[in-house]
Design a protein around this nucleic acid. Structure first.
Lengths: 336, 336
DNA sequence: TTGTACGCGTTATCAA
DNA sequence: TTGATAACGCGTACAA
């Protein structure tokens, strides 16, 4: 079943058939109707390989997911897939380990798959600085800001991590907390972690709160297990604190568990705040206080921007999506 | 950069270059070495479209994921991707809504993408009975048993849902429980739900436990929210129970939350058991008792079987993977 | 062992 | 508006 058969069936030439199938002008309504009808009846499927070989262009968009244990990305991928499904493009998703170089990997995948664009879910600017030069198709970095990076083909849509985590700390300070520890990411390797840390520090400075980055900060991976371990370590070190901020909900959940295992109650003994706003957080015990990211907006804007750029209808841009601090049950006023 | 360029560079013909690149016999070591070296130096990438057009065969494997909110599938996809990464095949993942017809969708995707095989994550036998006939490539149904289905190209690897959920109930009975409710799936539409229900009933019969399927069973979707709602409904109905079995961990977590919101303690007032063994369950408060599936085994065997069948080295088969009941903190002996 | 040449299913160019 | 035909890059018979 090729356009040749279709041509034979309808009496037109392959040229006309091709034009009809692709909605090109210069084909009579009679011809178009007849051909489309025949195609439909015969269940004709255009051969993508032949098309792409001829046109020297694929139809695929790459999604590179960095750090698979962060459930936020799971939600994002789902949203992205839904947006893309309504377009002519197709999606290829690749999950990378948290400490792989996502840009190097993307370069390699671009050579191999020749996609029209790529969506990076997470990433760190150092990798972009050194390796992104090899990529010349439109890309967008999701959940990280790339406005400081000197690439004309790299957009970004992200939450303002500094403001968001500053707000988180502010909220806890407003509750009367002054003794903080942070379960964060590795700031030498994750921009997100660095920015969220920076947001915390701003709040601390603004409120004259003492914070020792060597003693009160643990930089680990974004997972339940690491959140748990980091909290254990903080506890073992003998630091005294009434508030714990975890820069991801998964870590916060691990942290709460560790606190419990050490006989500490949440929020009575220590308040815990997470980051991301996973649905799960509404069902945990206690319900997780968190700063929520706008997952759907993040996803939709990312694919809109990417497609605009792929289709040459726009330049690269850097957008910020809203966040909100949700005070649920894992935080409370100091002393009750 | 095509094999033509490579031919020009090395002085050999495109035929020899092609043979060298594909590890065919009848090419001298000299030629092979020289060509491979040149390819490497020039960063040569074979044009997949041309290759597939010529060979009339793609290299892709389809993964159809049914019910996106079930986090078990997230873990599975990750595992599957890792297995496939080490092969010559490429993966295309599609997430479907829980109540879409996964087989109809697969048929359509097969026409479009012409994959070599497909992996179904979840699915129901009714859809297979009516629509699977259209598919003639090797497939494997993961997490559901397909041994009763009359298709020579459909394998399956699954947990023995009947035994597994019987074991779950048995374990709670051994703890002294006799008043059960179940937060399950829709048995008219989900085989998994039907089987797990069946397992429960067997245990109930064996232990002469009274269970009213109309009053003590809620059939809903596999999500936190639905687990929560179902439990609310059970509670509102005034049923008295000391044990709740949720046929998925996500539902169990929703259920625990609902119990708490009604002033009931877990496990003191009611014991809760989940199903799946998500990592998350080790960090919740209380830690979730659950029957764990062997995710890695499920994933590995599925792709092994699929690839065997794709390469014609095996027939279709139906395997069962081990499960284990983990008693953590959400269950306890009745009255203490 | 190597080279030549055809064809896979499309799209696009050019003539009609 | 249509039809004929040349590419696209590769694999593979067949010939050498």
């Amino acid at each position: 079943m090729t356009i040749k058969d279709l041509a034979a069936k309808t009496g037109y030439s392959v040229g006309t058939v091709s034009r009809a199938l692709n909605n090109h002008p210069h084909v009579s309504k009679t011809a178009r109707d007849m051909i489309l009808k025949a195609a439909d009846e015969l269940g004709f499927q255009l051969n993508v390989n032949a098309k792409q070989l001829k046109q020297q262009r694929t139809t695929s968009i790459l999604v590179v997911v960095k750090g698979t244990s962060n459930e936020l990305f799971g939600e994002l991928v789902e949203s992205i897939q839904n947006s893309i499904a309504q377009t002519e493009y197709s999606l290829h998703v690749y999950y990378l380990d948290e400490d792989e170089n996502e840009v190097k990997r993307a370069v390699q995948l671009c050579l191999e798959k020749k996609p029209l664009g790529v969506l990076f879910l997470g990433g760190n600017s150092r990798n972009f600085q050194t390796d992104f030069g090899m990529i010349d198709i439109p890309c967008v970095l999701v959940t990280n800001d790339a406005s400081e990076l000197p690439f004309f083909n790299l957009s970004s849509v992200s939450t303002d991590d500094v403001q968001a985590s500053k707000s988180a700390i502010d909220a806890m300070v407003a509750l009367g907390h002054r003794d903080f520890v942070i379960v964060g990411g590795d700031r030498t390797v994750s921009d997100t972690s660095k920015l969220r840390y920076e947001g915390c520090m701003r709040s601390f400075r603004e409120h004259n709160i003492v914070f020792d980055e060597n003693l009160d900060y643990e930089g680990v991976r974004f997972s339940y297990q690491d959140g748990y371990n980091a909290t254990q370590k903080l506890l073992k070190s003998g630091r005294r604190f009434t508030a714990l901020f975890a820069v991801a909900d998964v870590m916060a959940i691990g942290a709460i568990r560790a606190l419990r295992d050490n006989g500490l109650r949440v929020p009575e003994d220590v308040s815990v705040m997470g980051f991301d706003g996973l649905p799960l957080g509404s069902y945990t015990v206690p319900k997780l206080s968190t700063v929520g990211q706008a997952v759907k907006v993040l996803a939709n804007r990312s694919v809109e921007i990417l497609i605009e750029n792929i289709e040459g209808r726009g330049r690269c841009r850097h957008e910020t999506t809203p966040f909100a601090v949700y005070q649920r049950e894992s935080t409370q006023k100091i002393g009750g």
